[in-house]
Simulated assay, not measured.
Amino acid sequence: MYAWVTNHGKHGGAAKAWMHRSFYLHGLPRSVLWCRIFGHRPVVDGYGPVRPGLHAARWVCCDRCGVRPDPQGNLDESVWSLGQRYDGPFVEPSGQLDRATVERVAELICTGERKPGPWPKKPTGDVSAELVVGRTFRAFSVELKIGNAGSENKVAAHLQIWPFGALYLSFGSFGTWLQRRLNPVGYDSRGIELSAGEWRISWKLWAKRNEWSRDDPKWMQGSISLDLIEHIYGPKRYNYENVGEPQQITVRMPHGDDHEATVQLQRQTLGRRRGRKRYAWVVDWTAEGGIPTRPGEDRGGVWSSAVEVPDAAVEDGGWPMVAAACIASALTADRVRRGYRVAT
């Protein structure tokens, strides 16, 4: 077991923070006390439905601490259900099995199953914390995250209070017991959160983390605006309207490569339901195969984006050429920033 501290202030940490550090503890004993005294409680874990044609997998883990045997086993998903108590054989390190176990192992081999191995003698885990002292991004935020069977952090939490700072906690695999009680099935993490910032109060009540669906009930996640201007004049939004037909252009990069792109002129409107609005001309473009901007053989690139063109370019009809130049300029700056080199 060992610990270390990272000072993010030396590496461009949170803006306007007096202190920004992370604390780590690695190799802590992981099993819960009950498992150490009375042994593990083996149950069937895994993912996927059992209907024919759909992929699924089943293995063995401890229902209390989440530790898996080594190997974890590969069970028949049509026989074993998620959460079912596992009463099958284990492979002992010595390889000495009684007659009943040998017969059961032979039966498993015939069905394509692989039996789990022994439990690890000294399972370990990690915990970490991140402390920010100073101004944070939001006025207030508190969250409890319950992970899923595949999460690296089974339980995590954070607290942000402006302008004092923020505290983030990650318990790694130590939260497995709570995760298996609250969110044992599926691979969607859940969260409970309350936050306030930018004149808006937001909440999540057992909602999927980093995901939103219109099918979710309104009580599960939402927000309330405290901005009087927004209530009177409406929220500020962008609207786009296509003008004319799409056209083909050639984007000539200064590195010597040319790329064909499809461009569409659009009228952009920014404003509220009532009041003044800002108008601009933008060109939405798409390049089949993308335009590379990263170095290396498997170079990443940009497949589509948009650029703004002046009113004069639209009035005289030369907006496609101006758009091609703007696209080349923006992607060239991206290439320089990423260290792009011409392939030789």
Rank of each mutant, 00 (worst) to 15 (best):
E245Y: 06
P93N: 05
R237Y: 11
V50I: 01
H26S: 11
V127E: 01
R274F: 14
T124G: 05
H158M: 14
G175S: 08
Y340D: 02
S173A: 14
P246K: 09
W281M: 04
V133H: 01
W4L: 07
L159Q: 07
T344P: 06
R85T: 11
V342Y: 10
P217C: 07
G275W: 03
Y187Q: 07
F90N: 03
Q266L: 05
A287N: 10
A328T: 00
W59V: 02
H255L: 04
L75G: 06
N7R: 15
G147Y: 03
G117Y: 06
L33G: 05
L182N: 00
Q160R: 14
R237A: 13
G222L: 13
D298Y: 14
Q221A: 05
A15H: 10
V50W: 07
W199E: 10
P254F: 01
G53Q: 04
W319S: 00
D258I: 00
P120H: 05
R272T: 02
N153E: 12
R68D: 02
A287S: 14
K208Q: 14
R135S: 11
K277V: 03
L194T: 12
P116M: 09
L228S: 15
R338W: 07
R104S: 14
L265A: 06
L265V: 09
G46M: 05
D76P: 00
A3S: 09
H40Y: 03
S141D: 11
R21W: 07
A325F: 01
D258F: 03
L178A: 15
E211H: 13
F140H: 05
R68H: 07
P295A: 12
L270I: 03
D87M: 06
V251F: 08
L33N: 02
L82C: 09
V5G: 04
Q72H: 09
